[in-house]
Design a protein around this nucleic acid. Sequence first.
DNA 1: CGTCTTTGACCGGCGC
DNA 2: GCGCCGGTCAAAGACG
Length: 327
Amino acid sequence: MDENDKQVDNDPLPGGGGAAEFTGAATESSWSLGGGDDESDNVYFFGTSGTDRESSILTEFGWSFQPDGNRDIRAGGDGSRFDRIDEDLAGNSTTTTASVSASASVSITEPTVTEKITDEPVSSSCSDDPPEKSTASGSSSASRPPSDTASKVKKKGQKRIRQPRFAFMTKSEVDHLEDGYRWRKYGQKAVKNSPFPRSYYRCTNTKCTVKKRVERSSEDSSIVITTYEGQHCHHTVGFPRGGLINHEAFTSQLTPLPSQFYHPSGVQYPHELVPMSSPAAPESHTMPGETGPEPIRLPETSQPDATQQPTDEGLLGDIVPPGMRSR
DNA sequence: CGTCTTTGACCGGCGC
DNA sequence: GCGCCGGTCAAAGACG
């Protein structure tokens, strides 16, 4: 076990090993954003037919796919690219050209926003005050405040609040895909009907409550299903343990690779998209063609985190910060 | 020493 | 009402 195993975070610093890690391991991996869902939950899956909605959804989730030219990084001419989205969440997202790799484009099915009404404004994955300080260290809190299970369970009679989610499948050898954020694993569960466990991650940013689940398809072990829940309200890369992120270093790690997928953070995803119609798609996630009745509307959240680290801003200035609204 | 992963237990939601 | 399952917590251990 070395960093590759342990570091599920997305430390993009060359020294962190993150870059080397995924660039090396995912040579032949593929990305696929598929439309799917979790019926009861609103999970947006990225499928194979691009629409404006997709971009809007992506935008709402704080995702935008960088055009290769943004950083002067070329996708090797394979056509993979996403146009950058600069609109704010509330506004109209610009057209997003989505044509990923040679095989897939993004398509999102509109989910049914089934957020339950609650007392607490779980409007965003970020709040002005940190949900809890224990985020930094899982073992720091000895006992959890009775009321603190908020994120988990609402008061009696109220259903758990779910943030909008979206999931996608990727063909990759690595379970945890680099997406520019740092994640901390907080749980793992065996999944029914699947030999592979499901891992639960939480954004390490104390003010960000975005979570993500990662699991492998039971039918095709090479396919990784990643489900994001919530919306980031901060810049992509946190502060790597090694220190502040160095823009040059950060940029340099974005070595041009063929068929890449760019996250708003500028991080590239050397994974190929897998059509969501793939049989590998687990029932709970796949919902090809299904479209939600209502347009997506993220909870009004994310006030642009005023507390954002200026450093991030400065260093990653040209990176579209997920969850960030127009500035 | 601080951070992160592992892992068993707990709790609520949901289907039968 | 009961049992199953998903999701989360938190103590303990590992690692840098």
